[in-house]
Design a protein around this nucleic acid. Sequence first.
DNA 1: CGCTGCATTGATGAGTGTCAAAATTGGTGG
DNA 2: CCACCAATTTTGACACTCATCAATGCAGCG
Lengths: 224, 224
Amino acid sequence: MSKEELEFMQRFKAGELTVEPGTPILMEGSNAPQLFTALSGMGIRDKVLRNGERQVINFVFPGDFIGLQAGILGEMGHSVEARTAMRLCVFDRSEFWNYFKSHPSRAFDITWLAAVEEHFLGEALATVGQRSALEAIAWALVKIFQRGESLGMVTNNCMELPYTQRDLADALGLSLVHTNKTLGKLKDRQLVSWSDRILQVNDLEALSEVAITSLAPVKPRPFL
Amino acid sequence: MSKEELEFMQRFKAGELTVEPGTPILMEGSNAPQLFTALSGMGIRDKVLRNGERQVINFVFPGDFIGLQAGILGEMGHSVEARTAMRLCVFDRSEFWNYFKSHPSRAFDITWLAAVEEHFLGEALATVGQRSALEAIAWALVKIFQRGESLGMVTNNCMELPYTQRDLADALGLSLVHTNKTLGKLKDRQLVSWSDRILQVNDLEALSEVAITSLAPVKPRPFL
DNA sequence: CGCTGCATTGATGAGTGTCAAAATTGGTGG
DNA sequence: CCACCAATTTTGACACTCATCAATGCAGCG
């Protein structure tokens, strides 16, 4: 990023925000005046149906852009909530278009992130639709772990996971109880263990085998 | 679109392509040199797991942009195949970046489409994950019908649907048999009928009720 | 006219959901 | 430091949606 770009970023950037765990960041259906980039901490994207059922769309990691839909469509399709303390870079939505227009390479990066998200959602759809509970959970843990690795959050095959089993269940379209029992199976097989907010992956290779995925290296992402 | 823009479009546009039903347009995992916009006809996006299970990601309608992932990430996350005869506007991927850089408002449109897709995939995820078979099928038919309406493909509550029940089943993570029986229920209730490639919606209101959605008007989309 | 693909129907059962309750954990105030 | 409470995890029993298997029918097509 050039010096000139950085300078403009500063103008686009309206400030920095620190939020507590549990803080709602964007609400489904809202037309938020602000967009964010996660600088640190983790969050969760979800939406709830009128009957109360909840679907987790994705887990938010540092580097993720939050609010693309609000910025472009004027309405979020899901909510975003902090699950740990988070530092957010705040952008002003009204500046979005200016920014987009005057900095094509940044605009390209935003589209890049959108494309990555589209790619991910396609995979997620395939797992919820086609994988068995065991396969789905294995898939999710592989994805999370790899993302964690690429962000340097993994030490000794361990990373912190601030989510609950309910979150995972709602992400995969499974019941909480069945998710719990299935996690137990993976632990029995010595592939992973997840307790006390710590995810430990013993055999990523074998886990990805269960998940019916080939584990490709995670590609670098543009930032901000 | 200004005259100047249109002119540039022409340069970006490498040509026009007509394909037969069943023609593969882009393959999952490929790094295609070409991108497309569907001008007419319908297609399908899908991906298959290593175990042979198939997930359809979305149905392709006129106006859809095809190949964003290839254009930006260099690799498609799913395949695209024509289901009717289609006319495609062909773009040269190598020109993509130039195009993006020099025409911010077109670039914005592309990102718009990406955001819409992201929005849609979130909803799809919620239906596969949380809706019952009956709800899911109702949801899918509502979506399809509304999309058709916005494109003027609906006459007398009828539109043509070149897909098979297997396609719908694979889109919703259901078995073919169960999909068939569930479609039967909706027909029994006089809500929809779908046979001989014709989808007829008798009571969109009631159908959306079954689907647990509020039927919002379809927003206009940018084109090309 | 016999394929081949798709729609349709019935019978059976596996994979998950639901219900209920206990065990654990973490936080909070006395 | 301990008692109490809410949230989460864990376990067992049972029910049900939906997948699987198997046939038949039906239409398009070479």
